[in-house]
Design a protein around this nucleic acid. Structure first.
Lengths: 247, 247
DNA sequence: GTAAATTGTGTCCAGTGGACACTGTGTATG
DNA sequence: CATACACAGTGTCCACTGGACACAATTTAC
C-alpha cells in the first residue's frame, strides 16, 4: 500500500502542476471531482466511492477521471484535503495553550464528524496537503512558548488528533469498545460469561453518560500540563527555553 | 458497512455454534483459516488477503471457505481474534495501576506490532471476541480500586488502546504526521512554504529521538493520575505538588 | 437401508481499479 | 494561415474481487 506515486500526489496537492496550454479545455477540475467524491462518501460511506460512481455523478466516463487524478489513492488524498477544509486561526482565542488546543480539537472533531469516512481514509502513511498542514501548524503554534521541544509539540498534536480520530462520532469505535454495542446481543453473551469478564460486564451495565471524547481530551491536556509545569521552573520566565530554535 | 450479520459472527467468535453431526467431516476449521489469513496479512498486508488467496494457500476452493465463514467481514473478525491472542495476566505485575496499565500497553503494542494490519482491520464498529474482551477485562481490573467510575475506567482503556492503535509502528501514522515522511520530498515542499508553516517546518527539522508512543502513553497516564488523585483525598504518594487547576 | 444434512466444487455474476489505443479539440509555432 | 503537437474524453479490455447458487459426494441418524 506504500504510495509509490507519492511524489505526483504531493505535487497535485500543493498545486505544483503547470496547467497545460495546448489541448482542449478540461471540462472538470480536481477539486470538483474531489467535492463530488466527498459528497458521496458523506452520504453513503467511503465504500460507495468508486471511479465509476464519481464519474457517473458528474456525467462522465470513469476513465476521464484519470486525466485529473493518478488513481484512487490520489483521489482519496484529494478528498481528505477537500474535507478537512481551511485551518482555523487560533490567534483570536483567549487564554493559554490549553484553551487554544481545546478549541482546536473541538473544531477538528466537528470537521471529522461531518465526514465520518475520514478515519478509514486516513489509514496508513500519507502525505499532508496544504490544508491539513495548516491544521497542524495552527496546533503547533499554540504550543510555541510552552517549553516543550519541537518534537514534543508535534507528539502532542499527534496525540490529540489521534484521539479525535479514535473517538469519531458515537458509532465508530475501532477498538471494539463502543458502549453502544453493549445494548444489543453482546450483552447477553457477556452475561453468560460473567465469571470471566466481571469488570467488563460491570462497565457494560453502567449508563453511558460519559462523553468519552471530552474525557480523553481532558486527560491528555492534563498530562501535557504536568509535563510543562515540570519543565518550567517557577522562577524562570518563559522565552529562554532554548529548544525552540533547534538546528 | 454496518455489520448486518453481526449476530452470526458473534456466535462464531464465542463458540456458540453447535457442531454438525450429519454430513461429511469438515476438512478445515475456522481457526485454521484464520491463522492462514493472518500469516498472509502479516507478510503482505491486509490487501493481500482475499478469499481466493486464503483458499489457495490451503489448497481449497474459494467457495469452500464460505462453509466456515459467512463472508470476508467475518473472516477478518476471526483474524483479529487470532492475532490479538490470549490476554495477559497482570496479577503478577508489581506496583499500582500505573505499572499494570503500562505493562498492559506494552504487551498490547508488541502484539499489534507483530500484526501491522490490525489498525486497518479494526476500522469501524466491531464486535469483540473472547480474547479481545479478555484484554479489555485485564486492563479494567487494573483500574478497579482507583475510584474511577466503571464508565471512566472503560474510557481510560479506550484512550490507551486507541493511542496504541494510532502509533502503530514507526511507519504508520494515520494523522499524516509521521516524522518519517519529513525526510523525503515533503521537506522541500514544506521549505518552499516556510513562511506559512514555520512551526511545522521547525518540527520537521528536529531530530526524531522522541518515542512518540511512550511519550503519549506517559501523558495519558499522568492525566489519569491527576484525575484519580483529585478524586481520592488521600496523601499524595511522592508526586509533584502541582495542583490541577486547569479547565 | 434410506433419507437428511453437510461438505467441497464449478459456474456465473456484478463490480472494482486500471492499461491502452483511439478520436476529437484546441493552441502554439511554422 | 496551415499544420503539428499536446491534450481531453471515450470505448474496450483485463485481472481480480466478494459472493449466489446449483450440484455431487459424503456421512450420520433413524
Amino acid at each position: 500500500m506504500a504510495d509509490q506515486n507519492g511524489s505526483r500526489t504531493l505535487q497535485l496537492l500543493w498545486g505544483l502542476r503547470k496547467p497545460p496550454t495546448r489541448g482542449p479545455r478540461p471540462a472538470l477540475s480536481v477539486s470538483q471531482i474531489g467535492q463530488t467524491a466527498v459528497t458521496i462518501a458523506d452520504a453513503e460511506g467511503l465504500g460507495a466511492v468508486s471511479m465509476q460512481r464519481v464519474a457517473g455523478e458528474l456525467d462522465f466516463t470513469k476513465m476521464s477521471l484519470y486525466r485529473y487524478v493518478a488513481g484512487k489513492a490520489e483521489l482519496i488524498a484529494v478528498m481528505i484535503e477537500e474535507a478537512v477544509g481551511d485551518p482555523p486561526d487560533l490567534g483570536a482565542v483567549a487564554g493559554d495553550w490549553r484553551e487554544k488546543l481545546t478549541t482546536w480539537a473541538q473544531l477538528l472533531w466537528e470537521t471529522w464528524d461531518r465526514h465520518q469516512w475520514l478515519p478509514a481514509a486516513t489509514e496508513g502513511t500519507r502525505l499532508m496537503g496544504p490544508k491539513e498542514a495548516g491544521w497542524v501548524e495552527a496546533a503547533l503554534r499554540s504550543l510555541h512558548r510552552t517549553g516543550l521541544t519541537d518534537a514534543e509539540q508535534l507528539a502532542v498534536v499527534r496525540l490529540i488528533s489521534g484521539h479525535i480520530r479514535n473517538t469519531q462520532s458515537t458509532r465508530r469505535a475501532g477498538t471494539g469498545l463502543d458502549p453502544a454495542q453493549f445494548g444489543s446481543e453482546f450483552s447477553s453473551v457477556l452475561a453468560d460469561h460473567g465469571d470471566e469478564y466481571p469488570a467488563l460486564l460491570a462497565a457494560s451495565k453502567s449508563p453511558v453518560t460519559l462523553d468519552i471524547r471530552s474525557f480523553g481530551l481532558a486527560r491528555i491536556i492534563h498530562g501535557v500540563s504536568q509535563l510543562i509545569e515540570e519543565r518550567t521552573p517557577k522562577d524562570v520566565p518563559g522565552g529562554a527555553g532554548g529548544s525552540g530554535d533547534g538546528g
